[in-house]
Simulated assay, not measured.
Amino acid sequence: MNGIKMPSNILLLSIRPKYAKKIFEGNKKVELRRVRTRLDKGDLVLVYASSPQKALIGSFEVDRILEIPIQKFPEDLNKIWNKVSKKAEISRQEFDIYYAGASLCVCIFLKNVQLLPTPINLTRLREEFSDFRPPQSYHYLTENEFKMIKYIAQNNTCSVSDY
């Protein structure tokens, strides 16, 4: 996160650890969501790996957003699946379960993926940023919140309690 200029929107996004790992391994190139965001090309997303990891682990820049209404099941989902299946790193079964009953598919295409040298665990985030609450899905960060997280990332060291 060093040297990152202030984008228009900064989103703190909770992602299950197994999918977050795939992002930072370079395999997952699109994040799928059921809810529209205000993200646009060039915006920044900070990745919070949810339980059991509970840590801020990195970031990515938004390459582009694709929002697709789901009106006719399964035809619409088949079209979406064909567009993202090789980039989403999920099975067809997981995809179908995730979008069951949804009215919208949001595809966030990633670029400039950066893994933090040391993850910032939830305890450390709360030590420095007492109001920090991991989002259920996502949370837009203010400029001050982003600066605080950058500061923590730059000064993050592991303590004995982290092991």
Rank of each mutant, 00 (worst) to 15 (best):
I57Q: 08
T37P: 02
N121C: 13
P74G: 12
Y19P: 03
V62W: 09
A20V: 03
Q136F: 06
P7S: 08
L56I: 06
D131Y: 08
N78T: 06
D162N: 15
V62Q: 07
I23Q: 09
L66G: 06
Q154A: 15
E25K: 13
A100P: 00
L32G: 07
Y151M: 14
E25C: 05
P135D: 14
I65S: 09
E61N: 06
Q93V: 12
A49G: 01
F129W: 10
L12V: 04
N2T: 13
E143T: 13
V160Y: 15
P7A: 02
P69N: 08
I152E: 02
S103C: 05
N156P: 02
K147T: 03
E67A: 13
I10R: 05
P117V: 03
H139E: 14
K22S: 12
P117E: 14
E89V: 08
V106S: 12
P119C: 11
V106H: 03
V30M: 09
S130W: 05
I4C: 01
Y151C: 07
R34K: 13
I4Y: 01
N144E: 15
E143K: 15
S85E: 10
E61I: 05
E89G: 08
E143R: 15
G3A: 05
V84N: 09
A55C: 13
L141Y: 00
T157K: 15
P117L: 05
R124W: 06
K83P: 02
W81E: 11
M6C: 01
P17Q: 11
R36H: 02
R16Y: 06
A153V: 00
N78M: 03
A102N: 11
F60C: 07
K5Y: 02
A88P: 04
K41V: 03
S50L: 05
L141K: 00
W81P: 05
L110R: 08
K29C: 03
Q71S: 12
V62E: 05
F24V: 04
R124A: 15
T118P: 00
K21N: 13
P69M: 10
G3C: 02
K18D: 14
Y98R: 12
E75I: 10
I97V: 14
P7N: 01
G26M: 08
I149Y: 00
L115F: 04
E127R: 14
Q93P: 00
E25R: 12
P135Y: 09
L104Y: 12
